[in-house]
């Protein structure tokens, strides 16, 4: 049962992933990405990683992508969304669809033949409490303390960088004033 759910979720993630690349409107892309993230969250759940699943939904789907949608809405405000007049040729579409179907079939076959028995065996050996918030917390403040602390410079660098890039550009003369 769990295996079936995980395959369905994996398929959905793949499908939405293709849609992210294939759709032409930015809103469709963002919504496809949300679908992809939700499917991934289900995958995490089937692998007993509850905390990861929750974070995936709360942070990515809940916060970041909603922000994306807001930005798209703000940028598109007052502008008529351009009609897509030159889609790919029919042959290209067919080739893409066939290729995607073949890839999906291959992935599914691989998953059923190779992965299913291994995954079942691995899940049986998981330590108690694996993937729970407590375990994640113990990891963060235990053996992963240094990497946890080192995310601070990443964020600081990103914040300062955004401030620099978002600053209105000044002309050369103004700057020296």
């Amino acid at each position: 049962m769990i295996a079936l759910i995980s395959y369905l979720a994996g398929l959905a993630a793949l499908g939405f992933g293709v849609a992210v690349v294939a759709t032409r409107r930015s809103v469709h892309t963002a919504v496809s990405l949300i679908g992809n993230i939700l499917a991934l969250a289900v995958l995490f759940l089937t692998y007993q990683a509850q905390f990861m699943a929750f974070v995936e939904v709360a942070v990515y789907a809940g916060a970041i992508l909603i922000l994306f949608l807001f930005v798209i809405a703000l940028l598109a405000a007052g502008k008529e969304e351009e009609r897509d007049e030159y889609g790919p040729e029919l042959a290209g579409q067919v080739a893409g669809a066939v290729g995607a179907a073949a890839l999906t079939a291959a992935a599914l076959l691989l998953a059923l033949r190779v992965h299913a028995p291994r995954a079942a065996a691995a899940l049986a050996h998981l330590p108690k409490g694996y993937g729970t918030v407590q375990q994640v917390g113990a990891g963060l403040f235990g053996s992963y303390l240094l990497p946890f602390e080192l995310t601070a410079p990443v964020l600081l660098a990103a914040i300062v960088g955004v401030v620099i890039l978002a600053r209105p550009q000044r002309g050369g003369g103004e700057e020296r004033a």
Partner: peptide
């Protein structure tokens, strides 16, 4: 830590490369 290292060194360099906006 390897991946954190590459991120901490890359993010500032991206910005530094674009520091001459004019």
């Amino acid at each position: 830590t390897l991946f954190l290292g590459i991120e901490i060194l890359s993010l500032p360099l991206y910005v530094l490369a674009g520091l001459h906006p004019e």
